[in-house]
Design a protein around this nucleic acid. Structure first.
Lengths: 243, 243
DNA sequence: TTGCTTGTCAAGTGCTCGATTGAATAGCAG
DNA sequence: CTGCTATTCAATCGAGCACTTGACAAGCAA
């Protein structure tokens, strides 16, 4: 053991990255930023913490090299430092799901009963997207859709779903997806759609996993279910997926 | 945010895995166990801690689901809980190396000057192994070699290298490897071999990375440079690599 | 300039963590 | 059984961490 001191310091350095992910709140932040960049106040709202505390956590992640910042006027946008960080997060989540018995219980407690919901795998969704006989709904907030989404998906944020139900055709299979396996938006969407006579299923995981698997993605504005500009009023019944 | 409490608990659970890796000593343990199972006292010696303290860390890793145990008489062998854990560790190390500026400095401090040492990439080593014109030396302790090694490698633990120098042919390129990029054994071996007129290079990383890349591995005893049984005396000059 | 928004910084508090020490247990060999 | 080895458990103490509060800085708008 040539130099115990230096070796310890090196491994302490490596462990510092794990430490950064070793707080539930910071884990939530990383999970959220895997969807795209976000300003501090929105992150704080998402994780249910004060802005000051959130800022502290973000500083911690910044010092650890896991995130980066971009300034725009008075707002500061945080984002993951790179795709490796997203990969690390997915690996961590995978190990937890696989090897930590308690995660199942905690997930059930948070997600509620998922058993009855129809699901679809990435591979199958990909096949059906190619056939063009499925409507894929991205039910995440609009900003996340614009930051990146499954190619061919339509944006319909969960908050707007109820009042825009009429835009969802009844004669097409619908697949909803959101942030990942521990996100409830798609569950809620599938339940709501099911209650309203649509054949809806939930993609087993979310956008980050799709992207990481190298499947086709798109970003920026795309024509969504109706027109997009808030100036326009909803048209009678429009653009279902035709492909 | 349906149930903030449950969501926080879930992410705390996910973060608990990161917490387990969030101590330099535990990181060292995981790095070590990536080479294969080990009993407690050996782990303690490797990380330079008391047995009691090491046991505590191991219990922590056990509770977190990252390692498992196997009993054999009075000894208890710890090992990683699965290949996903090794992947997680490699991902973590990768992020640290890529995004944490300080890691470079710490690595230099521990590893000393590596600049002058010849290195070889995995891909090139694989090609040369197929051609059969290279001698690959596994300079890790014998137990780690037996737990798994690069197919075609010979075991020559760093501690034995000096007294077995004569077994290393002078007319063949030699590549030494050990535990990974932050392991000094191969460095020491290459330096020693170089001083003694051998053309030696260091594999850029170690056995876990080779294995993870899906390249051919072997395990158990294999004929090494000379015969293996301690009863036999070294033969004059023998088995160089023939192919 | 003043005022407003967004985000950071600094200090304080209760809690958790890592390392140490000394004692206790499980398995084996006499 | 007694002793021995390998490992764990329990108690302790100091250091570090998460969250709060209140003040401060940076950018913009009037």
């Amino acid at each position: 053991m040539s130099d115990r001191r230096a070796k310890d310091a090196l491994y302490d350095g490596l462990a510092s990255v794990a430490k950064a992910l070793g707080s539930g709140r910071r884990a939530e932040i990383v999970d959220l930023l895997a969807q795209g960049e976000r300003p501090v106040d929105e992150i704080a709202a998402e994780i249910g913490q004060s802005v000051a505390n959130t800022s502290q956590h973000l500083q911690h992640l910044l010092r650890s090299g896991l995130v980066g910042t971009r300034r725009e006027g008075t707002r500061i946008f945080y984002s993951l430092a790179g795709s490796q960080v997203a990969d690390l997060w997915l690996a961590l989540r995978g190990v937890a799901a696989e090897h930590v018995a308690e995660i199942d219980r905690l997930a059930d407690a948070y997600l509620g009963d998922r058993e009855k919901l129809q699901t679809m795998s990435r591979d199958e969704l990909r096949r059906r997207l190619r056939r063009g006989d499925v409507l894929v709904l991205d039910v995440r907030p609009d900003a996340e859709f614009r930051a990146g989404h499954i190619a061919g998906a339509q944006s319909l944020p969960i908050g707007d779903l109820r009042k825009r139900l009429r835009d969802v055709p009844k004669d097409t299979d619908v697949v909803a997806y959101c942030r990942g396996p521990y996100c409830v938006y798609a569950d809620d969407a599938v339940r709501l759609l099911g209650r309203n006579g649509r054949k809806a299923a939930r993609l087993e995981d979310g956008f980050p996993e799709w992207s990481r698997a190298g499947l086709p993605v798109a970003n920026g504005d795309e024509p969504d279910l109706r027109g997009r500009a808030p100036a326009k009023r909803a048209r009678p019944r429009s653009t279902s997926v035709s492909s």
